[in-house]
C-alpha cells in the first residue's frame, strides 16, 4: 500500500503546475485550445480557489491535477511526483457528487481505505470519525437516495477525507445546491478544513463563495484560459459577506473578470 502522508521535508509547494496547456481536437481537425500555458503552485494547507467565468477550463485544469486528463504540454507535480494517473493521493469532490448509490454512507466513506487494503476495523473507525466530522452521525446505514443534496455532498467530502489524501480537489462542489444550503455548506467546509487541515484546490464561478473561503484566488480568463491575476485574501475568518473590505474585493475581482462566453 502506497503511503499518501505528507512529505514536507523537500519543499512546501505541494502542487506545482508547470506551463500546463490543453487542446481538444474536435471532428474534422478543428482545434479547441482550453488552457494556455498555466503555471502556479500551491503551498501546504493552503486554500486555493480557481476562479473564472463559466466554461473557461477550470474543471479541465482540476482534472489534469487529478490525473483524470493528460495535459497537451507541461506537467503537474504533486508531492514531488509528476502526476500521470488518478490515485488515492488526491481526494476529489464532484459537482455531481458521484456517490456510489448501491453503497450506504458508511460503504461510500470507507470505499477508499477498503480498496487500498486497510483492515476492516481500522477503516470503519476512521470512516466513523469523518462521518461524525461532517455532521452525519446516525446516518451510516442510509443510502444516498435517502439523503438531501447537502447531506450527500457531506458524504462526498467525508469520502475524500477518509482516504487521507495529500491534496483535496473540489470541483464546484456546491454548484447544484440551493442558495441556503450552499451558505451552510461553505461554513461547514471551512469548519472541517480548520479542524483537518489539508491543501485544497477549489473550483468555482461564484465570487462570493471564492472570497468567503479562499486564502488565495487565481483568476482565469476566458478560453484559452490563462492566469489573469492572483489575489491574496487575508481577511480574518470567519468572514462576513457584507464586510466593507469583502465587498471592495468582490467589486474589484468582478470588474477584472471576463464576461462569460455563453
Amino acid at each position: 500500500m502506497e503511503s499518501t502522508r505528507r512529505d514536507v521535508t523537500k519543499n512546501n509547494k505541494v502542487i506545482i503546475c508547470e506551463n500546463v496547456s490543453k487542446t481538444f481536437e474536435g471532428k474534422k481537425g478543428s482545434v479547441n485550445r482550453v488552457l494556455d500555458n498555466i503555471s502556479f503552485s500551491v503551498r501546504e494547507n493552503e486554500f486555493l480557489v480557481l476562479f473564472g467565468p463559466g466554461q473557461c477550463g477550470k474543471t479541465t485544469l482540476l482534472n489534469i491535477i487529478a490525473g483524470l486528463e493528460k495535459p497537451t504540454s507541461g506537467r503537474v507535480i504533486v508531492n514531488n511526483k509528476e502526476v500521470t494517473a488518478p490515485g488515492a493521493d488526491k481526494g476529489m469532490v464532484y459537482q455531481t457528487i458521484a456517490l456510489f448509490p448501491w453503497l450506504t454512507v458508511m460503504g461510500n466513506v470507507e470505499f477508499g481505505p477498503k480498496v487500498r487494503g486497510v483492515p476492516k476495523k481500522e477503516r470503519q473507525e476512521k470512516a466513523k470519525y469523518f462521518i461524525d466530522l461532517v455532521g452525519l452521525n446516525g446516518f451510516e446505514k442510509h443510502y444516498p437516495s435517502q439523503l438531501s443534496g447537502g447531506m450527500r455532498q457531506r458524504v462526498g467530502i467525508a469520502r475524500a477525507y477518509c482516504n487521507d489524501p495529500y491534496v483535496m480537489l473540489l470541483d464546484e462542489p456546491f454548484g447544484h445546491l440551493d442558495a441556503q444550503t450552499r451558505y451552510m455548506m461553505e461554513d461547514e467546509l471551512q469548519r472541517i478544513w480548520q479542524k483537518e487541515k489539508r491543501t485544497i484546490v477549489f473550483v468555482t464561478n461564484n465570487i462570493e463563495e471564492a472570497l468567503y473561503l479562499a486564502d488565495r484566488i487565481i483568476l482565469l480568463t476566458n478560453c484559452p484560459s490563462t492566469i489573469k491575476k492572483e489575489y491574496i485574501i487575508d481577511l480574518p475568518r470567519p468572514r462576513n459577506y457584507v464586510d466593507k473590505r469583502f465587498l471592495q474585493l468582490r467589486k474589484e475581482i468582478t470588474m477584472n473578470m471576463d464576461k462569460s462566453q455563453y
Binding site: P86, G87, A88, M92, F100, N163
Partner: peptide, 14 residues
C-alpha cells in the same frame, strides 16, 4: 456512469 469509474480510480481502485 464514467464519473463513478473516475471516482473509484481517484480513491485508489485498480
Amino acid at each position: 456512469d464514467p464519473v463513478l469509474i473516475g471516482a473509484a480510480r481517484m480513491l485508489g481502485a485498480n
